[in-house]
């Protein structure tokens, strides 16, 4: 127990030091362009979402209310900060096995006044990918996985949010015409 306590104390000391140092460091120009990425897990697969393509992230705290729809990827509607948002199953949009009961996170995309929420299981963390070492062209994973990227020893599929939005809009228009 003493080992754990001492470890905790050293950790607290380090946190306190880093926290203080973060205020002491002079802001500097970044040497290389970093692309922020959101690391997620879908159907036991590792994926990454470009931060630049989404407008927000939220934990799913409200209930998703199912609505009748011909679009099977539409899970329903939920409320986020006073706005009614349609929620689509990201895994199903990517053609993966849906884990609807395990959906915990929402990313928002599209217009700010009428966003669309994509629901997924696990948000791992955010990381920054240098723009110089990126992206391996992706073949055979569909048009919504634009590339594969390497994060350390892990390969992640790079989800193209813009392509997904295009599809959703296209299907919505066709459904409305029907």
């Amino acid at each position: 127990m003493n080992t754990v306590v001492s470890k905790l104390e050293s950790r607290i000391e380090e946190m306190r030091r880093l926290f203080d140092e973060s205020f002491a460091i002079v802001p500097h120009e970044q040497v290389a362009e970093l692309q922020p990425m959101l690391a997620i897990t879908l159907d036991a697969g590792r994926y990454a979402i470009p931060i630049r393509e989404i407008s927000g992230l939220a934990a799913l705290t409200e209930k998703i209310v199912p609505v009748p729809s011909r679009v099977p990827e539409l899970l329903g509607l939920t409320g986020v900060r006073g706005i009614v948002v349609p929620v689509f199953d990201l895994a199903k949009l990517l053609g993966l096995k849906s884990q609807r009961e395990q959906v915990r996170w929402l990313v928002f995309c599209g217009e700010r006044q009428s966003p669309i929420a994509l629901a997924f299981e696990t948000m791992e963390r955010m990381f920054e990918l240098p723009s110089t070492e990126k992206i391996v062209p992706q073949d055979g994973h569909g048009r919504y996985i634009s590339a594969s990227l390497r994060e350390g020893v892990t390969l992640r599929g790079l989800i193209s949010i813009s392509a997904l939005l295009e599809r959703i809009k296209t299907r919505g228009a066709s459904e409305r015409r029907k």
Binding site: P36, I54, L57, A58, M126
Partner: peptide
């Protein structure tokens, strides 16, 4: 901490925008 993390990510998203 989680909420802070979410807020930070959202701040990053806003900054990127």
């Amino acid at each position: 901490a989680e909420q802070t993390n979410i807020l930070a990510i959202n701040a990053t998203i806003e900054a990127a925008g």
